[in-house]
């Protein structure tokens, strides 16, 4: 009776295409603190302590917040056309 909506990925499309810079993680130097996971506005960082982080590039918009908040600065923003 009502046109309802349900939680789903890609409610605004494949937002990874918005990206100009791509966050690239040096996982060997990552200290597994979870701060980037906490501040990612888009929930595109997967994190379980002990397994380090994983970024979902299908949807990551490339805002760069993760790189800014990383306390050990192991996330670099790399121009998309160079990767």
């Amino acid at each position: 009776m009502l046109p309802l909506a349900s939680p789903a990925l890609a409610s605004a499309g494949v937002t990874g295409t918005w990206r100009i810079y791509k966050p690239v993680v040096e996982l060997e130097k990552c200290v597994d603190c979870g701060v980037c996971w906490q501040f990612c506005p888009d929930s595109v960082i997967e994190w379980e302590r002990g397994r380090k982080i994983q970024i979902d590039y299908t949807y990551c918009k490339g805002c760069g917040i993760c790189a800014e908040v990383c306390p050990v600065k192991v996330i670099k923003m790399v121009p998309e056309n160079n990767t």
Binding site: L2, P3, L4, A5, S6, P7
Partner: peptide, 9 residues
């Protein structure tokens, strides 16, 4: 029960 009503179509 995560239903949404009223977002853009």
């Amino acid at each position: 029960v995560p239903v949404t009503f009223g977002n853009l179509p």
